[in-house]
Design a protein around this nucleic acid. Structure first.
Length: 317
DNA sequence: TAACCGTGGGC
DNA sequence: TGCCCAAGGTT
């Protein structure tokens, strides 16, 4: 059994004065070179960072990496791109095939949305992943982060890329706090924009570098400050690395939730070759009320297709 | 806005 | 062991 967590943290103090802005700009200039140089030396050789990955490879990786660790994404990513090297290849297959190939990455609605994004790309964009942030944002499953990430990593554009890693790096290095706020704030977006290097290609490199720093060094639990290229300028370190004080963290249990039941139901359908009789689904969970609710939810989400006679399968459309 | 949406590994 | 965490998005 496992649990997911949510964290209640105190909001950071707001500030947006001209003096503060200039201070941020000075901070930025002092951070760019060390962070980018560190990235040059220490970046992981991940398949979606290689030139041959292309924009589609970047987009696939971004979908898979939404809340799923790199190590679990790697094998599925390789299979996925081998099978569907272009968006139109994926769009040509039923959405259920995307759900099946998603395997155990979790949050299978992402598979459905990636399939939907591929279909939209094939139909509206001539089969090429769009370059513009607004067009990316309009694709299913693409939010502010993913749109900025694809535009930056795939097309070298200048965007503030604010993921959980970057938010943590900035919270510490700039704001002197152990953790960023629970939800992304306008102040964080503003700061991220202010910290962006002017030069487009440097900005894209900075985005990748700050993410990598958060993933490898400035980690959530036990940061490796001894290996940090900006430890001497880190506001959190300079403040003595104070631990978060405030509302205690709330944890949401996973065991016994509808999510767990949905996962068990979908696992049966993923591994089945053809349609699955109701009886096979009934075996995964004892509580029939909750089981029915979970199955209804999967159908409502388009992850499962009900057939006449109490038989179910992954969706063909 | 807060709740919901999977799964597995580290400590 | 059980909690914490992981390149978010949608409603």
């Amino acid at each position: 059994m496992t649990a997911t967590t949510e964290t209640a943290r105190t909001p950071e103090p707001e500030r947006g004065s001209a003096i503060a802005d200039e201070s941020v700009a000075q901070t930025a200039r002092a951070l760019h070179s060390p962070v980018v140089d560190w990235f040059t030396a220490h970046a992981r050789d991940l398949p979606w960072r290689r030139p041959e990955a292309g924009a589609w490879g970047v987009m696939v990786s971004e979908f898979m990496l939404q809340q799923t660790p790199v190590n679990r994404v790697l094998p599925v990513y390789e299979q996925w791109l081998r099978r569907w090297p272009r968006p139109a290849d994926l769009a040509a297959e039923p959405p259920g095939e995307a759900v099946r190939a998603w395997g155990r990455l979790g949050y299978p609605r992402r598979a459905l949305r990636l399939h939907g994004a591929a279909a939209a790309i094939a139909e509206r964009h001539g089969g090429d992943v769009p370059r513009e942030h607004p067009q990316l944002l309009a694709l299913p499953g693409v939010g502010e982060y993913t749109a900025a990430a694809v535009a930056s990593f795939a097309y070298g554009q200048r965007h503030a890329v604010l993921d959980t890693n970057v938010r943590r790096v900035f919270a510490r290095a700039v704001n002197g706090k152990q953790y960023p706020p629970n939800a992304t704030t306008a102040a964080e977006r503003k700061m991220a924009r202010a910290l962006l290097p002017e030069d487009e290609s440097t900005a894209a490199r900075w985005a990748a570098a700050t993410m990598e720093l958060g993933a490898l060094v400035c980690t959530a639990r036990t940061p490796a400050c001894g290996q940090c290229p900006i430890v001497q300028q880190c506001a959190w370190q300079l403040a003595g690395a104070p631990e978060h004080v405030g509302p205690s963290r709330r944890t949401q249990t996973y065991a016994g939730t509808d999510r767990q039941v949905r996962g068990k139901l979908l696992a049966v359908l993923r591994e089945a070759v053809g349609p699955v009789p109701q009886a096979a689904l009934d075996r995964v969970w004892g509580d029939s009320v909750q089981r029915a609710r979970a199955l209804d939810g999967l159908v409502a989400d388009g992850l499962v297709e009900p057939l006449p006679g109490g038989v179910y399968r992954l969706p063909l459309s």
